[in-house]
Nucleic acid binder design. Structure first.
Lengths: 211, 211
DNA sequence: CTATGTGAAAAAGTTCACAGCG
DNA sequence: CGCTGTGAACTTTTTCACATAG
């Protein structure tokens, strides 16, 4: 319901959780799922579930619930998780290595197609089945390969320089694990995944619990 | 200003960003920093900065700004980043390995003191300078060592079982990288770090940018 | 009689504008 | 004057309650 382009941010964070709960639910073979059930399986209140699903092209049946398969499809549709999308990882450190080999990407239609680093000692070596390439070759590479998504796992000091090269290559989406605010033009989307924020949040709450 | 116990969640997410900007700023040797400067260095509007700092025990000087050192101290204080805090990692897979060796924890006063896994083949082996221990020994271990923070990097199917063992051991804070909602008593704080949400968010925005 | 879909109320968070201190 | 600190306006998000459909 509702052809909304421009889903509220908090809703957007919850949709993937519904999707995952639905995939688990799929295995049960049940055809419908109620908002309360979907809610409890994803840790979200049932009225919030219904409100959120308002932004998705799907209709629930009264006294039955939402058709599981349709809902999965609609969520994939709205999240842009249809088809394959190529991405590169910039930064062949520990986190970059872990991410480039993370099998979970496939479930979300992403494929890590190449890995870049600025360290000459790393360039040319193999990590998993990816050969590490030089960041200097990135802009040309991106244009030629038409890759529009990048994951940044370089140290903070290098992040902006790498970002500039990505922009030069015409990147459209950046998943930034470096702990700095990146300066990008308005047509480039940046998602910051700052692990230190998680740490601080944890610290804050644990400190209150124990003093 | 303001002895607030119970800082708004969005503010809590921004405080670590100020802290980091301040640390970078520290190197310049300047004693004061204005809200607009601090804002631009952390990518946040200046009035938002001032509002946020309302929840922190610090006073800015008119026409000068905030004293850098005091502000750093106050932020560390409110975030509970004073002193050393021990934590364990549960799950010796790729992510668990990367996190257990991540040097950044030290900056935030955390120390990964041990690593647990349920796989008998992994138990006993060394990862970095940590020996992998069996999850079955966790509850006793936690009690004896007084560790109250854990990082979960096990697969989704195992996460709740592991969580139950952590709770049995008296854990107070969990940083959960497994993509499931964990069921915990109200006195246990769970911070979910769901990488798939980042993926989905990225996918949504890139899909809109290119169609 | 069960479970959706949605207006309307409440709460939370952001933005603004400006008084007032140094 | 420059820059903080904050009340008030505004916006967004959550919560609730209930009419309505199957």
């Amino acid at each position: 319901m509702m052809h909304d382009r421009g889903i509220p941010k908090p809703t957007l964070e919850r949709l993937p959780r519904y999707l995952r709960a639905l995939r688990r639910h799929e295995a049960t073979g049940e055809i419908f799922i109620s908002s309360s059930r979907l809610g409890s399986e994803s840790g979200i209140e049932e009225f919030q579930v219904r409100k959120d699903l308002t932004h998705v092209e799907v209709t629930g049946l009264r006294s039955k619930g939402y058709p599981v398969e349709d809902l999965i499809l609609a969520l994939r549709q709205v999240l842009g998780l249809t088809g394959q999308r190529d991405a590169i990882v910039v930064g062949a450190g520990r986190l970059g290595t872990a991410l480039s080999q993370y099998p979970g990407f496939t479930n979300y239609g992403f494929k890590i197609v190449d890995l870049f680093d600025s360290d000459p000692y790393k360039v040319g070596s193999m990590i998993g089945d990816l050969r590490v390439m030089s960041v200097d070759s990135m802009p040309k590479y991106l244009r030629e390969m038409g890759v529009s998504t990048a994951i940044i796992t370089v140290p903070a000091e290098e992040a902006q320089r790498v970002t500039d090269q990505l922009i030069e290559g015409g990147i459209k989406g950046i998943w930034n694990f470096a702990p700095v605010a990146l300066d990008v033009p308005p047509d480039v989307y940046v998602r910051n995944e700052d692990l230190a924020i998680g740490l601080a949040s944890l610290s804050y709450h644990v400190a209150r619990a124990r003093g």
